[in-house]
Design a protein around this nucleic acid. Structure first.
Lengths: 105, 105
DNA sequence: TTGGTTCATCGCAAAATCGCGATATGTACT
DNA sequence: AGTACATATCGCGATTTTGCGATGAACCAA
């Protein structure tokens, strides 16, 4: 019944999830191609900020900050390529969250 | 892959969990008798606010507010009996949270 | 080089959260 | 009635979060 030493720091994770737009974005990222079916870069690299911004209907700076928050919580990863920042779900963290949830709460 | 209509409203739940003291309290409540081993009311009714306050080392009003937040998120239940408010984990919500976590995020 | 695109960061004002003491409510015991 | 106890709520200042426009940095194309 021990808690792994490298366990997630759950507080920032829950803080990041406790925001309707951030929670929605994380759900949307389960289907990256839904953002722009014709854009092959999405499938290969992830979803760029512009698409997330459009779907969330927030300003560009707000979208960037929302993703920073998710990134600090290790819920997404970012890949810079050219002028784009490609965002993906961090399935490691998300899976670990489900596993340790009961142990911690 | 449908989301149940009576699914939890996850945002308040995550908001409540995104606070170190509230997260700790929820963990402590897994072992109610650890608060006051000699107090039989704990086992029968739950943990009264005074014990939670002492363990969390916050003021009485703060303790009450922390528990209100957990209550609004349906993470605990409260039973009033005499002058005491007895708090228990709401295992229903917590179990449901684990189940629907992947579907939603 | 110039202009356009994508994104992060800065600065700020509005809003929400936090934690406390003070107060109010209700209960229990004399 | 009067006192003591347990808890909830109010009011307030302090801090944090939120969302935006403006600016800056990096990249690309003409």
């Amino acid at each position: 019944m021990e808690i792994a030493a490298d366990a997630l720091d759950l507080v920032p994770v829950f803080k990041a999830l406790g925001h309707p737009t951030r929670l929605a974005i994380l759900g949307w990222l389960k289907d990256p191609e839904s953002f722009a079916p014709e854009d092959s870069a999405t499938r290969e690299h992830g979803v760029c900020l512009k698409y997330i911004q459009a779907r969330a209907e927030v300003s560009q700076s707000t979208a960037s900050q929302l993703m920073s928050s998710l990134q600090r919580a290790n819920l997404v990863t970012v890949t810079r390529a050219g002028q784009w920042s490609y965002y993906r779900r961090n399935e490691d963290t998300i899976a670990k969250l489900g596993q340790i949830l009961y142990d911690v709460i």
